Simulated scan of single mutants.
Amino acid sequence: MDINRIFEINTSSQFNKLTLEIFSFQYDNNPVYQKFCSYLGKTKFNVNAVEDIPYLPIEFFKSKKVLAKNQKPQIVFESSGTTGQLVSKHYVARLPIYEKSYLKTFEHFYGNIEDYCVLALLPSYMEREGSSLIYMVKDLIKKSGNPKSGFYLDNKVELLETLEILDQSAGKAILIGVSYALLDISEHHSLNLKNTIIMETGGMKGRRTELVRDELHSILKNSFGLDAVHSEYGMTELLSQAYSKADGIFKCPPWMSVAIRQTEDPLTSESFGKVGGINIIDLANIYSCSFIATQDLGRVYIDGSFEVLGRFDHSDVRGCNLMVL
């Protein structure tokens, strides 16, 4: 299969056609996904529409090697977790696909990476190995080519000074930060930024009390002097990201889409505007699984944009007992 076709999608018909092709490929080549589909009575012969494709519960990435046959992983990304807790492992067969996906996604929403100075405040991710977010941000920092781009951990004074210098220079700057670290800054400092994007990646990582996104963004907007706070939505098990430029409304690149499943029946879809479990199609995940049932709650709107409203427990197994596969 020509991988470039994934990143050349321009229409919904192109997306649907390629989605069905990739489903057939993964049914034939991914043993874990094929077995899951078979238990649901789904095969490449009776799935004729995108709406019929089964979504693999994200929990499978904790217990199974979700990887196409005859593929050797170039890298294994791991989710964060407490000691003794099973973590998700994403076996990535071809790193260039991931690199192309996040770069083209950034360009799709923000333009040329070389126009930006990229600053990162991701302490919890830096403290462990195998973070797909760190891999992406490190590469974006490198590709920006700006000498002031880089990671900041405990040197928050230097970070604040750099932000003010960059903002006053009227150049484009973006600060990508985990939520609790951005809040730490907001409690002790006040800025009035005009040319800087503050982007939160979510997550308190057990460091602070969880906040709803509206409350988090309100605090950050007041502290940084901004009209809007941006957000990134991605996860270990995916190779693509969605971005929100305001109000927590996310949009996907053309090779990614989000649908909602009913909370009480994970095999049934939910209508636009209704709250349910988030299902994701990520066509860049071709050698893993492109059809993921997440543990996130959200709603999707008719234009394809979506909100993330929180998480719920056992979303992937409610209504069916397939985790024993």
Score class of each variant (00 low, 15 high):
residue 78 E to F: 13
residue 194 K to T: 10
residue 229 V to W: 04
residue 262 Q to P: 14
residue 123 P to Y: 04
residue 243 Y to Q: 03
residue 93 A to D: 06
residue 147 P to F: 03
residue 211 L to F: 09
residue 209 T to H: 09
residue 314 H to K: 12
residue 25 F to E: 03
residue 159 L to E: 03
residue 89 K to E: 15
residue 207 R to E: 10
residue 265 D to W: 15
residue 44 K to H: 03
residue 56 L to D: 01
residue 122 L to C: 12
residue 26 Q to A: 04
residue 322 L to C: 06
residue 184 D to P: 03
residue 196 T to R: 07
residue 58 I to K: 07
residue 280 I to L: 09
residue 88 S to K: 14
residue 197 I to D: 11
residue 301 Y to A: 09
residue 305 S to Y: 00
residue 190 S to E: 14
residue 201 T to I: 11
residue 312 F to E: 06
residue 161 E to V: 13
residue 84 G to C: 02
residue 138 K to S: 15
residue 129 E to S: 13
residue 170 A to W: 13
residue 208 R to G: 00
residue 180 Y to P: 05
residue 62 K to N: 00
residue 238 L to P: 03
residue 25 F to L: 00
residue 260 I to P: 02
residue 286 I to M: 00
residue 20 L to S: 01
residue 83 T to P: 01
residue 256 M to P: 02
residue 180 Y to N: 05
residue 240 S to V: 04
residue 10 N to V: 12
residue 268 T to G: 09
residue 27 Y to P: 01
residue 7 F to K: 04
residue 285 N to Q: 04
residue 65 K to V: 14
residue 275 V to E: 14
residue 232 E to I: 12
residue 280 I to E: 04
residue 142 K to M: 09
residue 134 I to F: 01
residue 120 A to I: 09
residue 118 V to C: 11
residue 187 E to P: 07
residue 232 E to G: 08
residue 220 L to N: 02
residue 316 D to L: 08
residue 179 S to C: 08
residue 168 Q to E: 15
residue 299 R to F: 11
residue 19 T to M: 10
residue 173 A to W: 12
residue 67 L to D: 02
residue 296 D to H: 04
residue 135 Y to D: 07
residue 158 E to H: 08
residue 170 A to L: 15
residue 194 K to S: 11
residue 49 A to G: 11
residue 323 M to I: 14
residue 50 V to R: 00
residue 269 S to H: 15
residue 296 D to S: 00
residue 178 V to L: 07
residue 42 K to W: 10
residue 226 L to K: 02
residue 28 D to N: 09
residue 78 E to C: 12
residue 168 Q to L: 15
residue 303 D to N: 00
residue 38 S to P: 11
residue 233 Y to K: 07
residue 97 I to V: 07
residue 143 K to R: 15
residue 187 E to T: 10
residue 165 I to F: 13
residue 236 T to R: 01
residue 213 R to K: 07
residue 150 G to F: 03
residue 175 L to D: 06
residue 89 K to I: 13
residue 306 F to W: 01
residue 57 P to D: 09
residue 324 V to H: 14
residue 193 L to A: 03
residue 114 E to K: 12
residue 269 S to A: 15
residue 9 I to D: 01
residue 95 L to N: 01
residue 82 T to E: 11
residue 318 R to D: 01
residue 143 K to T: 12
residue 204 M to E: 06
residue 309 L to P: 02
residue 80 S to W: 06
residue 248 G to C: 05
residue 243 Y to C: 02
residue 31 P to F: 03
residue 215 E to R: 09
residue 282 D to S: 03
